[in-house]
């Protein structure tokens, strides 16, 4: 099955090399060093990402075509909105909703990685509770919280916040090719977070939805980084709250509601009570 789907992705992208990096329930994600329409320098950097939503044979073809188109388009529109808001996320390069294809830039870049990987690397390289570890991690975690707050303040909800869906990379120097990219250094405290995978994202003004977004991230942190999850969760939430409060009186009121809902959601574990 998978081979046919991969073949189809290649058929849609003749002459463009693709490397499969993930196969979810809904879509395949490929990287490519070749841009569909920009001249690509002959590096082999996987600078571009192709997300492909293949047809699902179990669905009625009319329903399937509609879903593929709608979801691809929805994700592309959301990414475009994020570009307008200057919120760090992948940018749309090309979209073909009919075929379920979405091209975007690879925000991880040559020296970026997922927050999940970053936390693991730092935990290996530094002593627990050390000043060094805190100096590297805390500020960045606060920034990540602030980034999520920025998203929520604009009434956008990610829908699948895990530490694999938040990338972190060295702060980009001004777009000037002459400045060399800094060498990879895990202990670099000057990083910036970028959100990826908005396939389940949506617009929502509801505090409940934002609370669920945070809750999902908290659960993800607990399960992938169990030892220090409490510390990380605190830093993330602090960064989130501080960003809200920077938004003036409006922000100060809205954050109260989100935090209240977060408490509720934590109590009942995101799921509604059953009625038999």
């Amino acid at each position: 099955m998978a081979e046919n789907i991969i073949k189809q992705a290649h058929a849609y992208t003749a002459n463009i090399p693709l490397a499969l990096i993930s196969q979810g329930a809904e879509a395949l994600v490929f990287t490519s060093p070749v841009h569909p329409y920009l001249p690509s320098p002959p590096t082999c950097a996987p600078d571009y990402i192709l997300k492909y939503r293949p047809p699902k044979p179990y669905r009625h073809p009319v329903l399937d075509a509609q879903l593929t188109k709608h979801r691809t388009l929805s994700e592309a529109r959301l990414l475009h909105k994020l570009a307008l808001l200057d919120i760090p996320a992948p940018r749309v390069i090309h979209v073909n909703p009919k075929h379920g294809l979405l091209w975007m830039n690879n925000v991880a870049g040559p020296h970026g990685f997922s927050v999940k990987q970053w936390v693991w690397d730092i935990e290996l390289a530094t002593a627990p509770n050390s000043a060094l570890r805190e100096s590297v991690m805390k500020a960045n975690m606060l920034q990540i919280g602030a980034l999520i707050a920025k998203l929520h303040l604009n009434d956008i909800v990610h829908g699948d916040l895990t530490t694999s869906n938040i990338m972190i990379r060295p702060k980009m120097a001004a777009a000037d090719a002459s400045v060399p990219v800094p060498p990879h250094n895990i202990l670099n405290p000057n990083l910036e977070p970028v959100l990826i995978d908005f396939g389940l994202g949506s617009h929502s003004a509801l505090a409940e939805d934002k609370a669920v977004d945070i809750y999902v991230l908290e659960r993800a942190v607990e399960s992938t980084h169990p030892v220090n999850s409490e510390t990380y969760k605190t830093w993330l939430l602090d960064g989130y709250v501080q960003e809200y409060e920077r938004g003036g009186k409006g922000g100060k009121i809205r954050i109260k509601e989100v935090l209240r809902k977060l408490d509720e959601v934590r109590q009942r574990g995101r799921k509604r009570s059953m009625v038999g």
Partner: peptide, 18 residues
């Protein structure tokens, strides 16, 4: 049927991947 069963299959597939 086609619609709601497709929804059930979809969330089942998501859980399987998860």
């Amino acid at each position: 049927q086609e619609t709601i069963f497709a929804m059930l299959v979809e969330i089942t597939e998501r859980a399987m991947a998860h």
